[in-house]
């Protein structure tokens, strides 16, 4: 048993640090794409698709006119008026962590607090195309440190499950977004028809999720767009694939739903029966959705997904992740 507010803080702390990392990875795809096209219009269109993939069209439009590299970097990295920017995310992370500090290990707190302190030291000339790789590497590195501290030092109790649930739910959604940036280039091509630019674009998607080498280990063949999509969506050995992420979501939802039998108090202090709401069907809703999605992905084939349409499939998947988030909130975080 945790206070709902504590669970909420842990959940969102983890989501936002993952979101910062994902935004960094999205920017990395955009940066690589924009660097290989020659016409300014094409570069602008790469940066625009990065904004779209991050779901920031509206906030961007209210702050900037055109999709220059500088504008996009500013908006996605440091503009705190954009709630999804990396720096805005980090502020939310620290805010949430501060409130639940005693539920965290010292190492997790140090990771969060250290990241926040370091974020204050970047200067204006770092927010440029030339400075961007350093910032993105820093975000990824610090986010990994957070994940490592969580994995290595947090007690396996409900607080830990909520952190992990936040991480994997956010990662599931963002992996889908990263594939979605480039869904239009991930279309089946007969061998030989693909040009070097196509291969480069597929490679950029893989690099964004640190899977460029993994692809070659799994398929032992040259890049193929459908296989790229398959690796990112269906391969369980790929840690950022949708199926891997949703399996983790299911696992931690099961833990959380397990009636406190794994709770630190061993479930010894039960809810007063007269106060507990009806917890029948409804009580497992987020878990039920997550299990259904996981089962679906485990039996799916990439051909079926292409049959539906890759973009349509990804849009639907992102929508379902949102539903799980809503159900989690309704079920656990309002505390009634």
């Amino acid at each position: 048993m945790l206070l709902s507010r504590t669970a909420d803080n842990l959940f969102w702390m983890a989501r936002y640090i993952e979101r910062a990392e994902s935004t960094a990875r999205l920017l990395d795809v955009g940066r690589r794409m924009a660097s290989v096209v020659t016409e300014p219009d094409a570069a602008a269109s790469e940066w625009a698709s990065t904004i779209d993939a991050a779901g920031c069209e509206a906030t961007f439009a209210s702050a900037h006119d055109i999709h220059t590299a500088g504008n996009v970097i500013d908006h996605l990295v440091r503009d705190v008026r954009n709630p999804s920017s990396i720096f805005a995310s980090l502020a939310v992370v620290r805010q949430n962590a501060r409130v639940v500090r005693t539920a965290l290990s010292q190492d997790v707190w140090d990771a969060v607090n250290g990241m926040w302190i370091e974020s204050q030291a970047w200067r204006d000339d770092d927010f440029t195309v030339a400075g961007l790789p350093r910032i993105l590497d820093w975000v990824k590195e610090r986010s990994q440190r957070f994940g490592g501290a969580v994995a290595n030092t947090m007690l396996r109790s409900e607080a830990y499950w909520w952190v992990r649930l936040g991480t994997f739910l956010e990662r599931a959604e963002n992996s889908a977004r990263i594939v979605d940036v480039k869904y239009h280039v991930l279309i089946p091509r007969p061998p030989g028809e693909a040009g070097p630019l196509d291969e480069y674009q597929w490679g950029a998607v893989l690099r964004a999720v640190s899977a460029y080498r993994a692809y070659h280990w799994v398929y032992r063949d040259r890049l193929d767009p459908v296989r790229v999509a398959e690796l990112m969506i269906l391969r369980p050995e790929m840690p950022r694939s949708l199926v891997s992420c949703i399996a983790q979501v299911t696992y931690y939802l099961e833990r959380i739903a397990s009636d406190g039998s794994h709770a630190p108090d061993g479930g010894a202090s039960p809810v007063r029966a007269d106060l507990a709401p009806e917890r029948g069907e409804v009580s497992r809703r987020p878990l039920a959705i997550s299990r259904a999605i996981e089962d679906g992905l485990r039996t799916a084939t990439i051909e079926r997904i292409y049959g539906e349409g890759l973009h349509e499939f990804l849009t639907r998947f992102i929508g379902t992740m949102n539903s799980i988030g809503h159900e989690i909130r309704r079920e656990y975080l309002l505390g009634e």
């Binding site: 945790l2 507010r5 809810v271 507990a276």
Partner: peptide
């Protein structure tokens, strides 16, 4: 538990806290 006002509510005359397992007196 370290609670704030919003974590507590009064239901049927009893003071309860909002937890991940529902209301607890």
């Amino acid at each position: 538990e370290l609670v704030e006002g919003a974590d507590l509510l009064v239901r049927d005359g009893l003071v309860c806290m909002r937890t991940t397992r529902g209301l607890r007196r």
